[in-house]
Simulated scan of single mutants.
Amino acid sequence: MSDRIGILLLAAGRGTRFGQASKMLGTLDGKPLVRHAAESAVAAKLGPVAVVIGAHGAAIRQALAGLDLRFIDNPAYADGLSTSLRCGLDALPEPDGIIVMLGDMPRVRPSHLATLAAAFLAADPVPAAIVPVHRGVRGNPVLLNRALLAPDLASLTGDHGAGRLLAARTDVVEWEMDAAVTFDIDTKAALIAAAHA
């Protein structure tokens, strides 16, 4: 385990394209989407793992019962992704690097996370971020360098993550990975398709 790398799992959003039910609690392969992501985060055996919750928070806590996680309530979740990112980073003050995971990406495995961490720890000079790429498309999860990005991350607003910040920087390392890093589930139709893939 490396305490230099923490994992932040974002699971606070309403997932409006999914309908009234919580997207994070949609079932794939017998378990909720968010549990797939959380189990991978814990199994990677890096640093602390924190989960930001908001909408459907109590149900998501229940769905993740038994896992070694820190839960962070984001009362401003309706104001967008940036609020979850900011409050999650505030709750993980120890690590140098933070892997930001999305709860609707069930194909991300511990090996993806370990690869990002190893790339970050071995880099010289240390980059602002390690971003997974599949066939030229940037994906998630992304490993952020807290020291280099802290001022910019603190200024994020609305429904935006770190993507816009990273697009403007030259000290971002792209790391080729498989299709799991660009596969997410936003709709019930996508969930049904994934179950039959």
Rank of each mutant, 00 (worst) to 15 (best):
M105Q: 12
R4Q: 15
T187M: 14
A197G: 12
G15N: 10
A38G: 10
H134I: 06
G13F: 07
A41L: 06
A59I: 10
R86E: 08
F71D: 04
D29Q: 15
E94M: 03
L64M: 02
I7W: 00
S2G: 09
R61Q: 13
A78M: 08
V34G: 05
A122N: 13
V49L: 01
T115F: 03
S111Q: 15
P151N: 03
P75V: 11
G47P: 11
T157A: 03
R70N: 12
L8C: 08
L67N: 11
A189Q: 12
I98Y: 02
D73C: 05
V34L: 13
A21E: 12
V42R: 09
E39K: 13
G6I: 02
R86F: 02
D178L: 14
D124K: 15
L46D: 01
D124P: 07
I5A: 09
R17E: 13
S22W: 07
F18W: 07
Y77D: 06
A128P: 11
G26I: 09
G15K: 09
I53S: 04
G136M: 04
I53L: 15
V173K: 01
Q62K: 08
L116V: 02
P95H: 05
A147E: 13
H196I: 14
I60C: 09
V108D: 02
G30D: 10
